[in-house]
Design a protein around this nucleic acid. Structure first.
Lengths: 290, 290
DNA sequence: CCCTCTTATAATTAAAAATTATGAGTATTT
DNA sequence: AAATACTCATAATTTTTAATTATAAGAGGG
């Protein structure tokens, strides 16, 4: 017995007729006959009593129909589950990002459009974001900078300036200084992120090119810590302009003599980009592109 | 989605591997890949996360597996119903067990009653036995100890004492010693099974409770090896009393100052316990209960 | 007794599912 | 670090299964 035969059996059992079962299944009547006959011969049982006015289940047939009915109900359930996932009336979208500031509005828009899709967001450092993407723990990743990888498709998403910020009580803040030159920072206490930070790398490269030597007084391992340390007046920090939460305690300045830019990429695993959720997310995200 | 594809999906879900799923279905691995890919493309969903060491279900995959499992359990039921229509004159019963000694007489009785049912017996370590049961490679399993699992029904089958045995030429054997105390073993060379062995665990616990420290001189990985090693006079072994084949070369002793017992359970997947063969086996097995 | 409604049979075609052979990626081993 | 071994993916091809059409055969009802 295979499930194609059982489906024919199930149709005949419901319709009480080979001919109508064939119509229900949109196949020809001989096909139905063959399926039933094959089953009956294979197990040497009689499933239907043939009458001149249709057919009737035997005892074994009744028992079998009880099972087959459940099987095809479950089949419908399975197919509906997949359809619902396809139509995004269910399902999950997982995203990893280096910081929340940038991705959250996009996710909000996505949720507005597909309220029934569950969204998961992993915030972590860039190593973790990359790992999450490559191990398919997430469908998409939003990250500043990335390493060339044949499995990943990268779309430049946003470019933003790297800015310097200080405490509100700092002299520069008091005189409302808007711009500064790199060399002015030599005499300032600076607080940096860890060496892996893309923002830091961009800044360090700019210093090298401008031949300005700056050494930090402190290194911290997260953006949140940096903000708190700068707000406490321990020194000046650098940060991507879009990653800075509005905070009354700090003052922001541009660097006028260096090209300080970071680019945020939207990363997708090539083998997952054809998924419905992923394609729809890209559509939503397009609106937020630079 | 059709049921052939779903069957492939179900097999992969159970086995966690395309390759092993293909083996289970006795088809080639590319056939499995094609079925899964067709489903994933048709519904634009991802059912498995591909890793280098097998695959893992996605969220949708988990939901789908829940349905597919039920479908194929019902299919088995249907096929069983048809086969069993003539009083178990055909069909297959598959059993896994940790050792043959205990199950063979039961199987013999079953065969006597249903000579036309083909019986398959898998002997393996407890990990393999559990895996066979959970992946439905077998209908039933007989095993010493087990982990609580909502899918499995466990019936205590037999409780037996753990005994110590030595070579016929050993001094204790020569003076026909019948009992011993744990501490007497301290000065003896002992040979143990691997740490996963339930017998060993029971023995180790007893030693701990009695505050007797025993260290083995050798570890072996199977009961057969243990028997040979002990028979060769390399040391003393421990074994469940019922798992000991009659062998002229060895001498058996009880431990009098410790409660050394293991319990053999008859395990049945709840999903399969209503199958005719399974129910009939239970009836036969009852006679052999303690 | 023929007309109509049923299921059965046979020959053929179409479709699906399988195979073999090979590739590409990733851990593990030496 | 190169070789190995083990994953799943892809492509071309063959085999198997399921369907088709055309027709037969049986069983009432007019």
């Amino acid at each position: 017995m295979n499930l194609t035969q059982l489906r024919a059996f199930d149709a005949v059992a419901r319709e009480g007729s080979f001919t109508r079962a064939a119509e229900r299944l949109s196949i020809s009547q001989p096909a139905v006959t063959t399926h039933i006959r094959t089953m009956e011969e294979r197990y040497e049982v009689s499933l239907f009593r043939r009458g001149s006015r249709g057919v009737e289940l035997t005892d074994v047939g009744v028992d079998l129909a009880e099972i087959s009915t459940r099987i095809f109900a479950l089949e419908t359930e399975a197919s509906e589950l997949l359809s619902a996932t396809k139509n995004l009336t269910r399902g999950t979208l997982r995203i990893a990002a280096g910081s929340p500031y940038f991705i959250v509005p996009v996710l909000a828009a996505f949720q507005g459009k597909f309220p029934e899709v569950h969204v998961g967001l992993n915030i972590g450092n860039s190593q973790k974001v990359t790992a999450d993407l490559l191990t398919e723990k997430v469908d998409l990743a939003l990250q500043t900078g990335w390493e060339e990888n044949s499995l990943v498709e990268a779309i430049p998403f946003h470019t933003h300036r790297v800015v310097v910020f200080c405490q509100r009580e700092h002299p520069w803040a008091i005189k409302n200084k808007q711009c500064l030159r790199l060399e002015e920072l030599i005499s300032e206490k600076m607080i940096w992120r860890e060496p892996q930070s893309i923002t830091r790398q961009v800044f360090e490269n700019a210093c090298k090119e401008a031949d300005v030597q700056i050494t930090p007084v402190m290194e911290v391992t997260s953006r949140e810590t940096l903000l708190e340390v700068v707000a406490a007046g321990l020194g000046l920090g650098i940060v991507s302009s879009h990653e800075l939460p509005s905070d009354q305690r700090i003052h922001v300045m541009e660097v006028e003599d260096a090209e300080l830019e970071t680019t945020e990429y939207l990363l997708t695993l090539k083998r997952r980009r054809d998924l419905r959720v992923v394609k729809e997310f890209h559509k939503v995200a397009e609106v937020f592109h630079d």
